[in-house]
Amino acid sequence: MIVDDSPEILEALQLIFELEDYDVVVADSGHAIIQKVYLHQPDIILLDIMLGDFDGRDICREIKDDDMIKKIPIIMISSTHGINTFLQLKCKPDGYMAKPFNVAELTALVASKLA
């Protein structure tokens, strides 16, 4: 599952991971994301930090606090650099990737979290 409010990034990430043979579910906002996670049961979530209507860190924390879905790995993505320590304290994601990201590094990070 990919959650990002930028249509360009959402489309690019969807294409990248579909070319890697992943089944991709996308969402362009944080609205009702927890219900979408329950509905689709993704193996991993790529979650933008600064969504237009929500803070991705709050969504991350909500998922990690829910016993039914907390084991789903979450990789936070953001154009804000140098906040990895803050992320660990606030929502405990399973990974972090700064935008602009290196496609090979991002796909390797996702693969490592799914292994």
Rank of each mutant, 00 (worst) to 15 (best):
V25G: 02
V25E: 06
V26K: 11
V26N: 09
V26F: 05
A27F: 01
D28G: 15
D28S: 14
S29M: 00
S29K: 00
G30T: 01
G30Q: 01
G30R: 00
H31L: 09
H31N: 11
H31W: 00
A32G: 04
A32K: 12
A32I: 00
A32V: 00
A32F: 05
I33E: 00
Q35N: 13
Q35M: 02
Q35S: 12
K36F: 00
K36L: 12
V37D: 03
V37G: 06
V37K: 00
Y38K: 10
L39N: 06
L39K: 11
H40G: 01
Q41R: 14
P42S: 05
P42N: 04
P42C: 06
D43K: 10
D43H: 13
I44K: 03
I44R: 01
L46E: 05
L46Y: 02
L46M: 07
D48W: 08
D48R: 05
M50F: 09
L51Y: 08
G52C: 06
G52R: 06
D53I: 05
D53L: 07
D53N: 13
F54R: 08
G56P: 05
R57T: 08
R57N: 03
R57V: 03
D58C: 06
I59C: 07
R61S: 13
E62A: 15
I63L: 08
I63K: 04
D65P: 01
D65L: 13
D66I: 11
D67P: 14
D67H: 14
D67K: 15
D67S: 15
M68W: 11
I69Q: 11
K70L: 14
I72S: 09
I72Q: 08
P73V: 10
I74M: 07
I74L: 11
I74Q: 06
I74F: 05
I75M: 10
M76W: 02
M76G: 09
I77F: 12
I77Q: 12
S78V: 05
